[in-house]
């Protein structure tokens, strides 16, 4: 692990900033409704990805090594394990700390976070549990676009997510066979992974 990565791992975000960010998003929802908040979340995630440097790797193995050691922009904010060539498993949701601080200091997570998720699931892609997943999955998609392996752009697809409070969202049944095939895991293995991890996704090149 590089010195920079070690430093980043050591620094924990301050709960004040996290909770303030949630309230900022709720303020947006109050004024612009679920559609407006959804647009903000997508814009926020895309801005973040755009502000990070592009990456290129010679081989898939080199890319996997960067992912596993948090050197890639895709894993800057999360710790992952890579059970197969293309399957990535996030062990702990990077939003977990913020959510925990929110529920500890403010109370129940505002309903608008799941309302907006429903809007996203209906209008964009049925893959999120709450607003945190919208940011995270949009970021991953935009960040993957900034990475080339062997000269080819990396593609991202979400398989399943489990929220900090245990709610699962697996992509629709008809999408699963092709995604599990890309991930090279079985349905049983997916359920085993979801028991004690937070997110399963795939990366590939065309």
């Amino acid at each position: 692990m590089s010195k920079e990565t070690q430093i980043t791992r050591l620094i924990e975000d301050n709960p004040f900033v996290d909770v303030a960010a949630y309230l900022f998003l709720e303020d947006i929802a109050d004024k612009q409704g679920p559609a407006g908040m959804n647009n903000y979340l997508v814009s926020l995630a895309n801005s973040l990805a755009r502000s990070m440097p592009e990456e290129e790797y010679k081989t898939w193995e080199e890319f996997r090594s960067a992912l596993a050691s948090n050197r890639s922009i895709l894993t800057t904010f999360e710790d992952v394990v890579l059970p197969t060539e293309n399957c990535i498993v996030t062990t702990k949701c990077p939003f977990g700390r913020g959510w925990t601080e929110y529920t500890k200091r403010i109370g129940n997570f505002a309903k608008v976070h799941t309302d907006v998720a429903e809007y996203y699931n209906t209008t964009v892609k049925p893959s999120v549990v709450d607003t945190q997943c919208i940011i995270h999955q949009t970021f991953r998609s935009a960040a993957a676009e900034r990475i080339k392996v062997g000269g080819k752009r990396v593609k991202y697809a979400q398989v399943a997510a489990v929220s900090e409070y245990g709610v699962r969202k697996i992509v629709p049944e008809e999408w699963l066979p092709i995604l599990l095939n890309t991930a090279k895991i079985s349905r049983t293995e997916l359920n085993m992974i979801l028991r004690n991890n937070s997110c399963v996704w795939v990366l590939y090149t065309e």
Partner: peptide, 11 residues
């Protein structure tokens, strides 16, 4: 992650 995303939105 949310804190950094928020800052990227300030601009």
């Amino acid at each position: 992650m949310l804190d950094i995303a928020l800052v990227s939105l300030i601009q």
